[in-house]
Design a protein around this nucleic acid. Sequence first.
DNA 1: AGGGATAGTGTAAGAATGACGTTATATAAA
DNA 2: TTTATATAACGTCATTCTTACACTATCCCT
Lengths: 239, 239
Amino acid sequence: MESNTRPVAHNHISVDCVVIGFDGEQLQVLLIKRDTQELHDMKLPGSLIFQDEDLDDAAHRTLDTLAGVQIDHLSQFKTYGSRNRTKNPLDTHWLQQSWHQNIERIVTIAYFSTVRQLPRIPSQFKARWVPLNDIAELAFDHNAILQDALSHMRMLAVTTPNILFNMLPRKFTILQLRTLFSLVQDKELDVRNFHKKLKQMPYVVPTEEFQKSVSHRAARYYRFDRKIYNKVYGVRSMK
Amino acid sequence: MESNTRPVAHNHISVDCVVIGFDGEQLQVLLIKRDTQELHDMKLPGSLIFQDEDLDDAAHRTLDTLAGVQIDHLSQFKTYGSRNRTKNPLDTHWLQQSWHQNIERIVTIAYFSTVRQLPRIPSQFKARWVPLNDIAELAFDHNAILQDALSHMRMLAVTTPNILFNMLPRKFTILQLRTLFSLVQDKELDVRNFHKKLKQMPYVVPTEEFQKSVSHRAARYYRFDRKIYNKVYGVRSMK
DNA sequence: AGGGATAGTGTAAGAATGACGTTATATAAA
DNA sequence: TTTATATAACGTCATTCTTACACTATCCCT
């Protein structure tokens, strides 16, 4: 390897997490409120990583300490290290306040996960669920990271659809399932063709429970059978 | 964000590049020879990044300075930051020799690209093309990185097949194309079905040139038409 | 009993996939 | 010049997947 005179980067490293939930109608994103004198906006849950802390561990810790949320499986999808990503004066000032030290460029590794419905966030945390469509301008380059996360989700939905079932309640109706698929793929899905597709998913199994007290024909509840799923998808399964 | 007493990571950051070429018969990987008293092995071309250097720029620079190879499009596919990845004493010693400083954990961002055939490597460089099947144990966690790169390539081959045409000479025979597809997908491809698939690729256009002085019926040469390809694949194109 | 709301079902046409064997044409060898 | 050998090029059929499309069933409410 060449010996160089140019100074070598010795940067802070962080993780940022995009966590997506589904309330039955919309996709929602877990965000953190930044409330200071100058700043009233939101950001992805993220944190610098500690000395000798593994990346995946840092991501789990971040969600635990910032939102009280535990996630079984987070997957890394992209790393951001542009020189400009922490150049906004408001952002750098906020970083100094938060970490009590001078922080130059931060290289951040972005993680993605889905969660079942919208886990309750204990009140001591500054985290909130925000509907995807209501998200305004975020801190740093977090809007770009979120967009990349959504593409990543669309890809995962094809290769490992369990990330979608992971968002639904234990018992769900086909309408809920179809709404979710439709949101993720960002297109309308034909009702009958969707039922047909269901038949090719042996891991979506009907229960004997039906909706109650709805003012129309009651829908049957289905459940996701992880064992059958793992057989179908072999080793590729999530965990 | 929480204020913390645990020391925050302030690590070296590097890029490692997996560059794949095709000689008409085999896939080959660009590797760097490590030749010291203790070490006689190979590694992926990689380098620490410089202060204020963008990640993508660092990857391009690395290939340029380590192998004299210029690449138009490198894509990041995964970041490695395990605490153990630089714990091998031979590796840490080598790092200190190369960079004249103490190097603890390195977080590395792995990049992938294909190149047309096997670009000639000027003799002053320690880089070599190594057939994929002949690759032995590499430095650090580079075998794992290479495996991840190959999965990434298989995925890209579906979404953006131009990375495959990017490996072929300007004029190529259908046999070459099929060999390449077959290697990447790691399965046999039926000759007639492959011809059928070609008809659905309007961007593979026949030329009026044929092989010369071959002791059998001469094969027609085809070329890859990037303009037609870009129309077919819309915005998703590589560049 | 009727209105309103959502659940749940089948069919037919076109497209994509996968299996399979024969003829064409160039050089080299006899 | 004939023959051997090596690879190129080509079509059909059965199966599966995809897409478009409309009516009946069931529950609650009034």
